[in-house]
Design a protein around this nucleic acid. Structure first.
Lengths: 232, 232
DNA sequence: ACCTGAACACCGTTCAAGT
DNA sequence: ACCTGAACACCGTTCAAGT
């Protein structure tokens, strides 16, 4: 109160990292990775490009921060936790959906290995692996395999959206084009891919993603390390 | 023969796509993704930047072509094929090693979804899944899961190298830094990651990669679709 | 048919100068 | 402490003009 007068119009609304990240997410959501530009960003924040550098140190840091905002939100949301397996499935699906909604997160995740965003995912999955009874020596390899799969699918999803956007198609049109290209491959060299092209056309990304997770969960179970399949 | 005289010094060494791809690979190998530049490339090929556009249509096409050259070489090399499982392991390891040697391939693969390079991998893996007796309806989802895992690990590897290069460390030094960062995380929020930080320091990427492949192979087996585990 | 190289329309980043 | 905005050192891509 006593200080009200002393702070002479000191603009209370000085730029904050949170504002910058929020504006970046908007730009990324509507323009993809190419949409995030220091000039577009500074225009949206009504400043100059240099101002942003007072708060963040590089574009790649900014991208990681934006990615982390999404991942943090996603990994802290409540999730079906009736069993460790169900929890892992739900966590994986939550990441899948987040990347589906913000495709740029898929590539940003891959580009910040070992950083906060991936650690959030690793941690939550790892805790469930413990609850599943995975042996201590295998914890890292197992968690890391699940994480790599999630990042791999996420990266593919991001790339699909990016490709589709660049050619002005929507995603399912793009997958249709891939499917027809595959069905025209040489039958002697690419029998499997040709055959599977049909399945690609009618498939559901989300279902296939989950099938992969289930595959890995079955593999974990049959490794013989599981002692309890329900935690709490 | 009769035409020898008519072609008056027509420079036989006109630029070929193969030359361009070969030069691109050299640049990528020694400078990473940032090392591939139309100016650097045209200097190395002793022409102007515009000349390259006569043969290729964009930088992203060029990157995919370079990536495909590596993948084609890798997937056509002979491989231990005593059983379908052994073949899948060997194929996966071959990709792992190729990406280890050319880290930029890891990110290039992800950025060209459904294109030739990934199709080569998909095809060879898919053929082995048939030999394993995977049911037709599950062929696509299974092959796609394995592919995503391989791409995921590859992308992480590429990112690790990229990160390490940017900070002037070698890769194992970089992993050490990640490990110490992890061991300093908050014990209440990140118990799993903290604990696993030790394992990260002494781990072997290749071994962990293979553990993930084996996990998925076990999952495929226990799915009940396998009828024969040796093909020829 | 193939190449040249200047020019265009951008980038991320820096930094003196301001308040 | 925080912001401004011009300037720097690059990019990928195009295109008239050459051979």
């Amino acid at each position: 109160m006593a200080k009200k007068v002393r702070s002479i119009q000191r603009r209370e609304e000085s730029l904050s990292p949170d504002q910058i990240v929020a504006a970046s997410i908007e730009l990324l959501d509507c323009g993809g990775e190419r949409g995030l530009t220091f000039r577009a960003l500074s225009e949206r924040l009504a400043t100059g490009p240099g101002a942003i550098y007072w708060h963040i140190s590089s574009k790649s840091d900014l991208l990681t921060a934006a990615c982390d905002a999404i991942v943090a939100r996603t990994m802290s949301a409540p999730v079906d936790g009736s069993t460790p397996k169900a929890t892992i499935r739900a966590l994986a699906l939550a990441m899948f959906d987040a990347i589906d909604e913000h495709p740029w997160v898929g590539s940003a995740l891959t580009r910040a290995p070992g950083q906060l965003p991936t650690v959030r995912v690793l941690e939550r999955i790892g805790q469930q692996l413990r609850a599943l009874g995975v042996r201590a020596e295998e914890e890292w390899a197992t968690a890391s395999a699940l994480l790599s799969y999630i990042l791999g699918v996420g990266g593919q999803n991001a790339a699909n959206s990016h490709f589709a956007r660049e050619q002005g198609l929507d995603r399912s049109n793009f997958l249709n084009e891939v499917s027809t290209a595959w069905s025209q491959l040489d039958p002697d060299e690419y029998p499997f891919t040709r055959n599977v092209a049909r399945q690609l056309r009618v498939h559901d990304d989300r279902v296939d993603f989950l099938a992969g997770i289930d595959l890995m969960l079955r593999g974990i179970e049959s490794a013989g390390g599981s002692r309890s399949d329900s935690a709490s």
